[in-house]
């Protein structure tokens, strides 16, 4: 009888030797498991209280690296290459009021109302030159700087510095003031957090404090529409349209009280909101008469507040063919 076994083909031989070689190599898991001190961190012996580690996150996060030339270049690429197209696709912004910035020189504080996580990106991409690539954002230390990854991303993408929400700490205020003195412009949301229900919250004095402290103008900015796209408490994006309206820069007089300035900022953003909702002249009439509808909405029960908001917080895709208008 003839030998019925056929010799192994070249491919089979190659596979077999590869398998053998694989067996001889150490497995990564096993290799990691095999690592011992000092390659591995020491374990803490029982009965020993380890010393408290110095906080390196939250308000203490050091963002200086984010203003190095390399980081600035990276941010430029992120802002123009990623953020701008994404914002355009998701938020389709209509930007108005640039003409009011004519004649504005040097650093400024851009203070806007706050509805959504999109706001920072929207506002940064809406800033005209020369402010756009020399701006930093104040971001909640407890939210954006609580993990290293989030902190790195916030610092790189938004050039964010951590700001304590609960109190004006020396450290964050001094850092912001130093940066402004260095010629950086600041993007800040004086409400201190996103709106929980679509209506505004009282403005805090941070922006005013910095403006008075550094003697730079505050540009009130009104953002409209981001609350429909990504409101607080959801993670689903519903693309929509937004409007960014820049207001006339407010210049603090040297001896102005920062609370007065904060009120002026809030009034200016309120006026812009009125202008966006209706027309400019009517808004000016109401502004002069002190009758601008407040950003914080009616002082009433939750449902009436939601009701008064109307369509402004509808977080759903508009139906394609509105009933009954079909043909």
């Amino acid at each position: 009888m003839a030998d019925r076994r056929t010799p192994a083909t070249r491919v089979e031989r190659a596979l077999r030797s590869a398998r053998d070689a694989g067996r001889r190599l150490p497995s990564p898991a096993r290799a990691v498991r095999a690592v011992e001190f000092p390659l591995r961190a020491p374990s803490v012996p029982a009965g020993v209280e380890p010393p408290e580690r110095k906080a390196r996150l939250g308000a203490a996060y050091d963002t200086a690296w984010a203003r190095s030339p390399a980081a600035r270049l990276g941010r430029l690429a992120l802002l123009e290459g990623v953020m701008r197209p994404v914002i355009r696709a998701v938020a389709d912004p209509e930007r108005r009021g640039y003409d009011r910035l004519v004649g504005l020189d040097g650093p400024a504080i851009f203070a806007a109302n706050h509805l959504s996580h999109l706001d920072a990106g929207l506002l940064l991409t809406s800033l005209p030159e020369p402010w756009r690539h020399r701006a930093f954002a104040g971001a909640a230390a407890d939210y954006f700087f609580d993990t290293r990854v989030k902190a790195t991303m916030a610092a790189l993408a938004l050039n964010a510095i951590p700001i304590e929400r609960t109190k004006v700490t020396r450290r964050s205020a001094l850092l912001a003031a130093d940066l402004i003195d260095d010629g950086w412009s600041m993007v800040i949301f004086p409400e201190g957090g996103r709106s929980p229900d679509g209506w505004g919250q009282p403005f805090r004095a941070g922006a005013a404090f910095l403006a008075v402290r550094c003697g730079v103008p505050v540009v009130p900015v009104h953002l409209e529409g981001t609350g429909r796209i990504l409101p607080k408490g959801t993670s689903r994006l519903v693309p929509g349209t937004t409007r960014v309206t820049f207001g006339t820069p407010l210049r603090p007089s040297p001896d102005e009280d920062m609370r007065d300035l904060a009120a002026r900022i809030e009034a200016a953003v309120t006026g812009l909101a009125d202008e966006v909702a209706g027309d400019w002249y009517a808004a000016r009439r109401r502004a002069h008469a002190g009758e601008s509808p407040p950003l914080s909405g009616p002082d009433a029960s939750a449902w009436r507040r939601a009701w008064a908001l109307g369509d402004r917080r509808s977080h759903r895709r508009p139906a394609r063919t509105p009933w009954p208008l079909r043909d």
Partner: peptide
């Protein structure tokens, strides 16, 4: 180039009109 000087002047005029409560413009 924007803003046109007419715009800047007209806005200043209208702002005063708004302050004075002028409706018929």
């Amino acid at each position: 180039r924007r803003p046109d000087i007419r715009q800047r002047v007209i806005e200043a005029v209208l702002d005063r009109a708004a302050a004075a409560g002028v409706d018929d413009v």
